[in-house]
Computed example of a mutant assay.
Amino acid sequence: MEELIEKIKEHLNTRMKLAKLSLVEKGVLLFANLITDGLVIIFIVLAFLFVSLAFGFYLSELLGNSYGGFFLVSLFYFLMAVIVYATKDKYLEKPIINNMIKKIFKKQEEE
């Protein structure tokens, strides 16, 4: 009987260690995904910023004044912000949440 109790304790200890390691692995994967996704977002934002500046200068040259092109570019972004804000609940938040859940549980699906 004592041997059975000892084996059960070993089994529980092993299960606890496995749970801890699994939790650490998920945390590290999530952190790595956040870092790499963050870097991608930073590079996209920088590229978008420079394209916006170039487009603002181009439109300013076409309009013949130094502020007109930048005003049009900022007006475009304001309209985009209003559209995104109006549609965020239906079209943006749910896919983002679903994608994050898939990333978190991707490792479990592979096993």
Rank of each mutant, 00 (worst) to 15 (best):
F55M: 14
M16F: 14
G56W: 06
A19H: 10
L18K: 06
T14Y: 11
L59Q: 05
I42Y: 12
Y91V: 08
V28T: 12
A47Y: 06
L49Y: 14
N13A: 08
L75S: 12
V73R: 02
K17F: 06
D89L: 00
V28R: 06
N65F: 08
I42K: 02
L92D: 05
N13H: 09
I42S: 10
F71N: 10
Y85T: 11
G27W: 09
V40Q: 07
K26G: 00
L12M: 13
F43E: 07
G56T: 09
L18G: 01
L21C: 01
G69I: 04
Y67Q: 12
N65I: 11
E93L: 11
L46K: 07
V45L: 13
F43N: 03
F31I: 13
L12K: 10
A81I: 12
I42N: 04
F57P: 00
L18M: 07
V73T: 05
E10F: 05
N65H: 04
V45R: 05
I35C: 07
F31C: 13
Y58C: 02
S22M: 07
L23R: 07
A47H: 06
Y77F: 15
V24W: 06
S60W: 03
E93K: 10
K26S: 08
L18P: 00
E25F: 15
L72Y: 03
V40F: 02
S22I: 14
A81K: 05
T14A: 15
V40P: 01
A86F: 10
L62E: 02
L72M: 07
V84N: 04
N13P: 01
K9S: 14
T87Q: 13
L21W: 10
V51I: 15
K7M: 13
G56H: 03
Y58M: 12
V40A: 08
K20G: 13
L92K: 04
E61Q: 07
V73Y: 03
N13L: 07
S22H: 09
K20V: 15
F31D: 01
K90G: 01
L12P: 00
E61K: 10
V73C: 03
